[in-house]
Design a binder for these strands. Structure first.
Lengths: 206, 206
DNA sequence: GTCTATAGTGTGATAGAC
DNA sequence: GTCTATCACACTATAGAC
């Protein structure tokens, strides 16, 4: 399929570094081509459009993220820690060479009021897998209220990413994890209270 | 300084609707000019650049947001509710004619890896005032740990905005408020425990 | 034959002259 | 308010190098 270092790989690397990690949605193709050491013709034989290239880079990034997250879950020693492992994974993921300015997927979603289908799909897949996995990990902790807890953890997780856009107000991953831990423990209390058939502190207002 | 409906106002209105609310950072000037019924020359006599116009629109939006937030705080009946009023304000603010796709300020921050100074300033002002106000409102509830609680509320608030970028996963403002309420109550427990001179449940890890 | 280099096209934008 | 200079971008087409 290619030379020694596939041109596709070089294109994906350049896109990952220049566009996704830097979080500059206006990165022109020329800079990607230059960095990849690839000519325009080669790009457009490999991918039908710039957006398709970006989508492919997002897909690859997603797979890497899943792997990092899996490892973090595997290292965790309790059900509570397995649910919170998403924050440990984030710390590892961010520490890589191509850690993103805030989030490659949300950044792509933010760039388009009406995203091209190929990008909408890439973004939606990450959001879906985030929810599905959190939902699964929340179940042993929160039982019937796993959906609620998964949403709360996703909220804090997404908040930690978004806070990086606020100058001087980025939140340490450990702090976000601690905030989520309070929610996890509260939910665990609801759940065991429910198991005992009583209501508990957090029977939310409206 | 203008005709009957100042051209500046019409430009700001158009920018607010077309660029900030729709959350499309690539909105061209032409569409703004067309909507405002204003000629290019007029724009560039009023503002030195497109970015300066956007910054002015952000500043105006910020002032409106502050007013809505002030009202919500004034309507609240307890210190706890005054801190959580930021979510009531968000609900009101979003319900206006020009409610944003997710957030006009974070959207601007996301659009540029290295924002033009005039925009960086507009964005930073909103983030600063968010923190300062939350910090002040958190003090009666959390005492010494007001900073921590303010950061946690900002985290959930920003998370609620960011979740709107996840297709099908937007979080109801009321749900985000309920999540924040759990954190507020936990912090209040820490604070009163501290007042009694004991440690409490949430003595966070690292 | 896959790739590079380069030149070129169409489009649409910012900015400013008239 | 019209009109235009300049530019940058996505993408294509051609011709040759390894």
């Amino acid at each position: 399929m290619g030379t020694r270092e596939s041109t596709r790989t070089r294109l994906l690397d350049a896109t990952d570094e220049l566009l996704l990690a830097s979080g500059d949605p206006a990165t022109p193709v020329d800079r990607i081509l230059e960095r990849a050491g690839v000519s325009p013709a080669t790009l457009y034989r490999a991918y039908p459009s710039k957006e398709a290239l970006v989508a492919a880079a997002l897909d690859r990034r997603h797979a890497e993220w899943q792997a990092v997250w899996d490892d973090a879950v595997a290292r965790a020693g309790s059900e509570r820690d397995r649910l919170l492992a998403v924050f440990d994974a984030l710390e590892h993921f961010r520490a890589r060479a191509t850690g993103a300015r805030w989030c490659a997927f949300l950044g792509t979603a933010a760039a388009y009021a009406d995203p091209p289908p190929v990008l909408a799909t890439a973004v939606a897949q990450e959001s879906e897998s985030l929810h599905t996995r959190l939902r699964t990990l929340a179940e042993p902790v929160a039982g019937d209220r796993a959906d609620e807890l998964a949403e709360a953890v996703a909220l804090v997780f997404t908040g930690a990413l978004g806070m990086r856009l606020r100058p001087g107000r980025a939140v340490a991953t450990a702090d976000a994890r601690a905030v989520a831990a309070v929610l996890v423990d509260a939910a665990a209390a609801w759940d065991s209270a429910a198991a005992r058939g009583t209501g508990a502190l957090g029977d939310v207002p409206a």
